[in-house]
Design a protein around this nucleic acid. Structure first.
Lengths: 121, 121
DNA sequence: CTGCATCCGTGGCGATACTG
DNA sequence: CAGTATCGCCACGGATGCAG
């Protein structure tokens, strides 16, 4: 019996979720907002090593996906508050689950890597 | 008041998990193995659109991370069976959680995207 | 059958400079 | 303060050909 392809990128829904949250800075941006509203500059200061360009780009994507709310106050100087939408907050349990797995198993992964690398050297 | 960065890529453990599972074909490869051992060629046939190079590369990474087991039978022609390790199986609940979220909220994301795009056009 | 080697295009990301 | 614009690097991934 020969099988036809039954696993596709389009049909695999969790691949699409990963597209949303797997960008380099996305998880950190969400993490910065989990306690409520936060200003652009405050995020810059809290997230180590992020550039203005990447913060802007990351937030824009999240806003487009309906995960983040952008509240602009046009004054001089202007202020912008970012916060999670209900949709964004629904991601938090997922992130937590990832974190739990990480805390339990990341050491094992690191060990597997180093033993694999030492064998192949 | 916090003025120092307290969120970093290194310290954020779920960023590391994402590095493991967020490659383009990784989720699909794991998905193909969730029912048990499967041969290389069988995976090629089941996963739509994957190339040999990417399947090999994906499996190698997963093997290095201790997520996948590789059982080579050197015959003519050779056969190779891939399967999830216990560590790999511990990822399945995570994938399921992603899938559940996807099924519940992916439509909302798509709507948010199209309404965002129509506003910005 | 199960890979590895190579070329190459695309896009993510960083650094820097500029603006309302 | 909160962005935009531009340049350049490099890893990811696709296509193709070769090998044990």
């Amino acid at each position: 019996m020969r099988s036809k392809p039954d696993i596709s990128l389009e049909a695999c829904t969790y691949s699409h979720v990963l597209e949303i949250i797997s960008n380099k800075w996305t998880a950190l941006a969400i993490y910065a907002m989990e306690d409520g509203e936060i200003r652009y500059g405050e995020m810059m200061r809290r997230i180590e090593g992020i550039s203005q360009k990447m913060l802007t780009q990351t937030l824009k994507r999240l806003e487009r996906d309906g995960i983040v709310n952008r509240k602009l106050t046009p004054a001089v100087p202007p202020t912008t508050e970012y916060s999670l939408t209900p949709l964004g907050e629904s991601l938090l349990p997922l992130m937590t689950a990832l974190k739990v797995w990480a805390d339990q198993h990341l050491d094992t992964v690191k060990q597997a890597r180093s033993s694999y690398d030492s064998l192949k050297s």
